[in-house]
């Protein structure tokens, strides 16, 4: 715990900042209160419905860089003459993602690593380049949160361009983390002041449930472990966990239209679906739900750190909240570490 120097953004300066962002052509996504729930939505102005004390939204902002449906190109074919029309990348939106928690900001790392792993996905990379992430430290958490177990802190600025922490007065302690953050600051310098404070004193304390590296080691040699079947018995095989997950990247490519004219579309898919790995031959290497549950866990906690040096889980707890049958991921990860791998 230490006192440090921060920029200060007063609550009453927020409307002016939002107006400036909108006027400069940015699209702002912010956590907006809607009844009991808070979800990210596009806003053009600051309003009191913007909730800076929410715990977690149902959906992440993954869709702003990896939309649930994205047209890759239009195609036209006239016998031998085939042409492809890609979208105008210069027209992609300049997004400001306002008030994401550190888990969500950190989630752009695995997305980025995946979409430039063996091929540079210019759709994702262009959207990412045009995105400014304004993170918000967490003042609250619930029993589904486990960021500290996956080595993220509720005050971490990793993945954010600007980091906000709300102080007791309701104003924000501001850290300018990257050049993109600096650009936003430079645009509205007059709205910021200076303050010495200790941001850690405003942060919620998320208990650590397990050790990430220990889990990663433990998963070695777990492929045939009996717990996959036991844990997945009640899994009904929907894609709710994958679709609310800020780091799941499975997608499907669909051609819509006719043979001579149409579009190719990239759309979300999930490894939890039974037909996801179904081969044309009829063979399905992941025929059962337990194999698919194993894939979900091993992909995030074993294959991703091995291959792209980043874990695939940010501890946001969305999958566990959304699961219709309470497949709670942190509970299952703890059990994996406690239970024997061999029968």
């Amino acid at each position: 715990m230490a006192t440090e120097n921060y920029k200060l953004l007063k609550k009453e300066s927020l409307p002016a900042l939002f107006d400036k962002l909108t006027a400069s052509g940015k699209t702002i996504y912010a956590p907006v209160k809607n009844g009991e729930k808070t979800e990210f939505d596009v806003v053009t102005k600051y309003s009191n419905d913007i909730n800076d004390e929410y715990i977690q939204t149902v959906q992440s902002l993954k869709g702003t860089v990896f939309p649930k449906v994205e047209k890759l190109f239009d195609y036209k074919s006239d016998k031998t003459d085939t042409s492809i029309q890609e979208p105008d990348f210069s027209k992609f939106p300049q997004n400001v993602l306002w008030g994401l928690h550190p888990c969500d900001a950190a989630a752009f790392r695995p997305l980025d690593a995946t979409f430039r792993w063996d091929y540079d996905d210019k759709y994702f990379l262009t959207r990412m380049k045009l995105t400014t992430v304004v993170g918000l430290s967490c003042s609250k958490h619930d029993d589904y949160c486990f960021c500290t177990s996956v080595d993220i802190s509720p005050a971490s600025s990793d993945g954010s361009d600007i980091m906000l922490t709300k102080n007791k007065a309701g104003d924000y302690l501001v850290e300018i983390v990257t050049e993109k953050g600096q650009e936003v600051y430079d645009m509205a310098k007059e709205l910021f002041g200076e303050i010495s404070d200790d941001k850690e004193s405003y942060i919620t304390d998320v208990p650590k449930k397990f050790d990430l590296n220990e889990l990663n080691k433990n998963l070695d040699g777990s492929f045939e472990a009996p717990y996959w079947l036991a844990q997945s018995m009640r899994c009904i095989g929907c894609g709710a966990c994958a679709y609310v997950c800020p780091t799941c990247t499975c997608f499907d490519l669909q051609d819509e239209g006719a043979a001579n004219k149409g579009s190719r579309i990239k759309c979300w898919d999930s490894c939890g679906f039974g037909h996801f790995t179904l081969h044309t031959s009829g063979h399905n290497p992941r025929e059962t739900q337990s194999q698919r549950w194993r894939q979900r866990i091993l992909h995030k906690f074993s294959y991703m750190p091995d291959r792209i040096k980043v874990f695939g889980c940010m501890g946001c707890g969305r999958c566990s909240r959304a699961c219709p049958v309470d497949m709670n991921i942190s509970e299952n990860l703890i059990k994996i570490m406690e239970e024997p791998k061999n029968e």
Partner: peptide, 29 residues
């Protein structure tokens, strides 16, 4: 995400119409 389908006891088809792709009855995206 098809949670509605997965949670429904009456949705027991081994190949749901929405997963059928020859022909493609239901638009996937």
């Amino acid at each position: 995400c098809y949670a509605c389908r997965s949670a429904c006891p009456m949705c027991y088809c081994t190949l749901c119409i929405t997963d059928f792709n020859q022909p493609q009855w239901v638009s996937v995206p």
